[in-house]
């Protein structure tokens, strides 16, 4: 601002208003066209993500403080109770993990017999949600991990109950996640009971996924669990996605109307797991 003369700051100096409007309009439209086509602007996106990171951090600050306060100011009794609960939970998980280890070993043996690639344990990392999107028709959120933590575009995220979504926009310190309930999102799934493959499409409602491509005579029942099929290469196979909760068969329509409720708690979670498929966890 040092070099400005008083006349420079008066309206009507410099390029005319209309000219500036035209130039910036051209810029915006060029950006939007480039941005809607694949990856041209990834570099600019990640740089801009750094610029706006302080704003996201500022929004996250009260929540982080509340978290910190609730852990550091909790009473001794609460902590003891929580500790006891966690111990019990740990014991239960340990028991089921033991069973799992046996099953996994058996599974690996059988797969070796069948001469197919062994399923490996996936490496995971905990991440926290920083912000949610305000557009009522999209289901996006921002997490506090980015390329500096080794995340990549298209990486899958899960919570304790199932698949949550994938990274749609990668920044160095934070990234944007497209939830499976976003209307733009589709997950290749299979029915756990019989291996029937189909696609689960988001609806914009956090409680409903749509299965639009099932014929009227498909073998699907209420309560069927949908798991990722691993086709499409984005989501690793075998994670729960949703449970079928509505089937309407109308013979005049080519496809049945099937809806499923996501297994993950899409509108409640604060912590998520990033998954690196096939990357063995260092214990």
């Amino acid at each position: 601002m040092a070099g400005l003369k008083p006349t420079d700051v008066l309206p009507g100096r410099g390029p005319a208003l209309g000219t500036r409007l035209f130039l910036l309009l051209a810029c915006s439209i060029l950006l939007m066209v480039l941005d809607s086509r694949e990856d041209y602007l990834q570099y600019i996106h990640s740089k801009l993500n750094i610029v706006v990171y302080p704003i996201q951090a500022a929004v996250d600050l009260p929540f982080a403080l509340a978290d910190w306060a609730s852990t550091s100011l909790a009473s001794r009794r609460q902590l003891l109770a929580e500790n006891r609960d966690l111990r019990r939970q740990q014991l239960r998980s340990d028991a089921s993990v033991q069973k799992m280890i046996a099953i996994e070993a058996e599974n690996a043996r059988l797969r070796a017999l069948m001469d197919t690639a062994a399923l490996m344990t996936d490496r995971t990392m905990v991440t926290e949600i920083m912000a949610i999107d305000l557009n009522p028709y999209r289901r996006l959120l921002t997490i506090n991990k980015g390329s500096s933590a080794g995340a990549y575009r298209g990486q899958a995220l899960v919570d304790a109950f199932g698949i949550v979504g994938q990274i749609s926009d990668l920044g160095p310190l934070s990234s944007q996640v497209l939830l499976i309930s976003d209307p733009e999102h589709a997950v290749p799934v299979e029915i756990n009971r019989n291996g029937l493959r189909t696609i689960a499409v988001g609806t914009g409602d956090a409680q409903i996924l749509n299965l639009p491509f099932l014929p009227n005579n498909a073998d699907i029942r209420l309560g069927d669990l949908l798991v990722t099929s691993g086709l499409g290469g984005v989501f690793p196979a075998g994670y729960p996605v949703a449970e079928v909760n509505q089937i309407e068969v109308n013979p005049s329509q080519p496809f049945a109307h099937v809806e499923a409720a996501p297994a993950a708690e899409l509108d409640k979670v604060r912590e998520l797991l990033l998954i690196w498929p096939g990357d063995v966890q260092d214990q």
């Binding site: 915006s28 941005d35 801009l48 993500n49 706006v52 749609s168």
Partner: peptide, 15 residues
């Protein structure tokens, strides 16, 4: 800044 924060097309809010 809005476009980056809300994940819309770059240039949408700007326009």
């Amino acid at each position: 800044a809005m476009d980056t924060l809300t994940g819309t097309l770059l240039g949408q809010h700007a326009l």
